[in-house]
Design a protein around this nucleic acid. Structure first.
Lengths: 206, 206
DNA sequence: GGATGTGAATGTCTTCACAGCT
DNA sequence: AGCTGTGAAGACATTCACATCC
């Protein structure tokens, strides 16, 4: 079961979303064909993706919707909730801290940090913004496993080091700066401007 | 010109960021090695990426920083500015509308739309939120080329259709819904929850 | 009949390694 | 010597096609 393509994992998460819609609409089974159409891929791709983890379907019938959804939740580690911290209470940071899509998928934002005294203490979605100098201690005491970095580039590495020192196991980085973390910490980068730049490339070449 | 991998385009945009840092610090030349280290890839990869578009370096020396930056701007279509509309003035939408990283890279947010009467007319970063029913007309009159969709899933296709009718050439979709657009319109999807879900997969498998 | 599961074939991307220029 | 540019090799991902089972 080792060596699963990244792209496969992304698609599994997409399939899960569709399965939950199907679940809600009461459908009992679904074919690789149907999943492929909704997910913008091919039936063979869907079957191959699933085959990395076992055989969950019935030949001639398809996949039992609730069962496959359950399996995918297990595979993706979404059968539990995660405690998450957001560092950076600027516009994007506060928006993420309040983004309904996160708790809906099992990610609870339990702390938000900033360095700016004007922001520290302000209420935000139930909690309040905490001083960035307390990151390490709060991450430890609140048992936070995931950190989201949304600071300016210049501060990103420093807050990352504190998150790591506090014991987070994964970091999602929105800052436009390359971060260094120990190999035990999982790192994913999202760069909003980069998305527009690849669009611009496509516009320029047609 | 041959078929250029998507991943290559992304990396070119990353190289450009670093080149601009080097430019600011006054360095005259840079090696593929140095670019690779900053960009988290290999020297061979950097050279291969660039080779899709020509030979910009000098053997034994490296690349002239300002020249290579200029070439990359041309390749990526970043030698001009783009007029962009944001649809959806919720938390994430307003944050994106005011995100400094966009104008810094040549993308000017010239209109923001929402359907909610409570939001329409409210000031936002110089302009004011406009009624979503005017999308088509405003996109046309304001010569908007790129639309960013940040609505709930249920409204995403409808606003997309209006953006397309108005004549946008590209759409960046943050809504957790698959969009259908004519093939002449370039489409890119960003799903924030998906990023955490792939992190969760990594956490569950180690 | 209908749809899965999967080896084999194909296609795409990355890495290697070295010739060739400065 | 130092570093680029690039075919060739290798690794990886997707698609095909068909045996297999309900």
């Amino acid at each position: 079961m080792r060596k699963v393509p990244d792209s496969t994992v992304r698609r599994l998460a997409i399939y899960l979303h569709f399965l939950e819609e199907f679940e809600a609409s009461g459908a009992a089974t679904v074919s690789s064909q149907a999943l492929a159409r909704r997910g913008g891929t091919t039936a063979a791709q869907v079957r191959k993706d699933l085959s990395f983890f076992g055989s969950f379907g019935k030949r001639g019938l398809g996949y039992a919707v609730p069962e496959l959804a359950g399996r995918l939740r297990l595979i993706l580690g979404l059968d539990r909730r995660y405690r998450v911290a957001v560092v950076g209470a600027g516009r994007v940071g506060s928006a993420l801290a309040q983004y309904a899509g996160f708790p809906a998928r099992g990610f609870d934002i339990v702390a938000v940090f900033d360095r700016d005294p004007a922001k520290i203490g302000q209420p935000l979605d139930g909690g309040r913004v905490r001083d960035a100098s307390t990151i390490e201690q709060v991450v430890r005491s609140e048992q936070i496993e995931i950190g989201i970095v949304v600071t300016p580039a210049a501060a990103a590495q420093e807050v990352t080091d504190r998150l790591v020192a506090g014991g987070v196991r994964a970091i999602l980085n929105f800052a436009p700066a390359p971060l260094v973390v120990p190999s035990r910490v999982e790192l994913r980068n999202v760069n909003l401007a980069l998305e527009l730049e690849t669009l611009s490339y496509a516009l320029a070449h047609r």
